[in-house]
């Protein structure tokens, strides 16, 4: 990322933000304390049900907090939801484009909805179509758009009124890889131009690629919050070796855990995953250890720790469980 223009001005601030949905005793969000600074791309990472969408919902006025407080652009979200909405842009998980309007009209009427005049709305709508490479679809029905294009149009619509924060809820869920990359580029560019972004995701690559800071959530609680690099450092390991083998895998795990530098091992499908801090000639030693317990090694792969590793070490579960 080029020159992340992160400032020290808080744009989002929550304190002890909590949500218990009526009729359930599940605490969807549990005492969340967050500060997001102007210029950041901030990620809420966690599996389904972690409370990411509920958090975004509270910050965008759609979900009423049960306790705690939240401020966006200095405005109390609970006390002044209507004012808050002037300063946020929201892209939800589902396609919410106006099906009875054309692509261009979807943008134009958004401008009018946010109090812009006809002339300004017209100009901005056309500019944004240009920027998001949708100009040739201007007159088309939104039904004609592919998933990726519809998502681009929703982002264009959400930034139309120049919000202080752009909220993206699982923006690339269900998109093909190419559209996902295109959307990542758009987010990076918007951010380079100064747009603060809060995104929720359960894709660790997305959080790693895009976010200045990531909050890892599970069961409504904040487990860790830092830059992706620091989060990965916090695991204390620098290499992950995955050994796929046949034979006694428990025995293999015990043998690998005894290696110099081994931090922990865990069972994976048809093999063992070894977390290592430091350690010379690692692969040779891994294979020797495996052969020492009579395991037939079929595949060995080496990777750096990822946010997935962080999540596993924090919760003992995989992100996509």
């Amino acid at each position: 990322m080029t020159n992340p223009p992160v400032t020290s001005l808080p744009v989002i601030h929550t304190s002890d933000l909590t949500k218990v949905y009526a009729g359930t005793d599940v605490t969807a969000v549990d005492g969340l304390n967050l500060t997001v600074y102007q210029g950041e791309i901030f990620g809420l990472l966690g599996p389904n049900g972690a409370g990411k969408t509920t958090t975004a919902g509270m910050l965008t006025t759609r979900v009423l907090p049960s306790a705690g407080s939240a401020f966006v652009a200095g405005i109390d979200v609970v006390a002044q939801p209507n004012l808050t909405k002037q300063f946020i842009g929201v892209v939800s998980q589902v396609n919410t484009l106006d099906r009875q309007l054309s692509v261009w009209e979807n943008l134009y009427f958004h401008g009018r909805l946010f109090g812009m005049g006809a002339i300004e709305s017209r100009e901005v709508a056309s500019e944004l179509l240009e920027t998001f490479q949708l100009t040739r679809w201007a007159k088309a029905s939104v039904y004609a758009l592919s998933g990726g294009m519809a998502q681009r149009l929703m982002v264009a619509r959400a930034i139309f009124h120049r919000p202080a924060v752009l909220f993206l809820d699982e923006p690339t869920a269900g998109l093909d890889p190419q559209s996902r990359l295109a959307l990542w580029e758009i987010m990076k560019q918007l951010n380079a131009d100064g747009q603060t972004i809060l995104l929720t995701t359960h894709y660790m690559e997305e959080a790693e690629q895009l976010c200045h800071r990531v909050a890892i959530m599970d069961h409504g609680k904040l487990l860790a919050l830092d830059t992706p690099t620091n989060l990965k450092h916090s695991t204390g390991i620098d290499t992950i070796v995955t050994v796929k083998a046949t034979g006694d895998l428990n025995e293999l795990g015990r043998a690998l855990a005894l290696l110099d530098g081994a931090s922990s091992v865990r069972a994976v499908e048809r093999g063992v995953e070894l977390h290592v801090a430091g350690g010379e000639r690692l692969l040779t030693r891994v294979i020797a250890a495996a052969e020492g317990v009579g395991a037939q090694v079929q595949d060995v792969s080496v990777a750096e720790p990822s946010l997935e590793t962080v999540f596993i070490r924090l919760t003992g579960r995989e992100l996509r469980d």
């Binding site: 652009a73 004012l83 002037q86 300063f87 944004l128 747009q195």
Partner: peptide, 27 residues
């Protein structure tokens, strides 16, 4: 792409924002 300067001085009163939103929805 559009930069997004936050200038809270540009905030409109809820009344005027509501009025223009109503007009836009009818339009």
């Amino acid at each position: 792409m559009k930069p997004s300067p936050i200038s809270l001085s540009s905030q409109r009163s809820t009344w005027s924002a509501g009025r223009s939103a109503l007009v836009a929805l009818l339009l």
